[in-house]
Design a protein around this nucleic acid. Sequence first.
DNA 1: CACATTATGATAACGATATTCATAATTAAA
DNA 2: TTTAATTATGAATATCGTTATCATAATGTG
Lengths: 143, 143
Amino acid sequence: MKRTGKKIFFDFISKNGLKRSRQRELILDAFLSTDRHMSIEELYLKLRARHPDIGYSTVYRTMRLLVESGIAREFHFGDGQTRFEHLPGGERNDHLVCTRCNAITQFENETIEKLQGEIAASHGFLIETHKLKLYGLCAGCRA
Amino acid sequence: MKRTGKKIFFDFISKNGLKRSRQRELILDAFLSTDRHMSIEELYLKLRARHPDIGYSTVYRTMRLLVESGIAREFHFGDGQTRFEHLPGGERNDHLVCTRCNAITQFENETIEKLQGEIAASHGFLIETHKLKLYGLCAGCRA
DNA sequence: CACATTATGATAACGATATTCATAATTAAA
DNA sequence: TTTAATTATGAATATCGTTATCATAATGTG
């Protein structure tokens, strides 16, 4: 159990009366072993290369569990597919999204977050989370 | 033609060899007469109350035209449904979204936008647009 | 007014996601 | 360790929002 993410997930599993399975571990590994924002289909194809017996539904179901357990987070970038990112290591809510090549870069900015808090407060609003996406052209695509 | 939005839309219609229709005008009116972020279904239900002969498909098609003509803009707030907002009067990219009652309030903040520009610049990124959503509890739901 | 064109509404198709169900795997108890 | 109860799986089907198809109706142009 080298990975923190794995520990969190399997703790979640046992805490909720669920069961460990080969598939869940494989899907978790596939998810943890990439830095990209993978969609279900991408994860499925990646997995199927080595494990042709894994079903599409299982990937869906397991990704839902990863979200519930708090180690993954859903993201929608507007292409109709749900994508997932790692959560441990702090929430990553802010992204630069290239409208040409779809490259996604994350950033964070304390000042912006502070301002968000002030804006919310002035509306009597209590922030749970936020999402900030800057759409445009990345350095590569501008060149 | 009292409304600016109407003029823009029907100019777009004739400029593109399309035709005016009773339905298009009704849908446009329904859209213009609300401040909320309406989904297709909500618009359809609102319309059907007075005009039971309007079809679902026509609402979809017309909303696409409103977006193309530049007077409406799509938004996704994570509930799986596309919602539309008025465009004239400046882009509105920043929202407070209540996770309990789904109320949506817009805001804008120059300082945040300036910081966005700086962040993008430091990545060699050219911003075309942005979306900022603060999720949490609105004043009403906190009480 | 005629005719060519576009719009309509109903229905079917669609893609992403969710659910069903019979079978298989896992865990807890004995 | 075998059993028994429970949960997980994969395949197929259903669902939801959205889009396309198609025959008919409305529009607008000459």
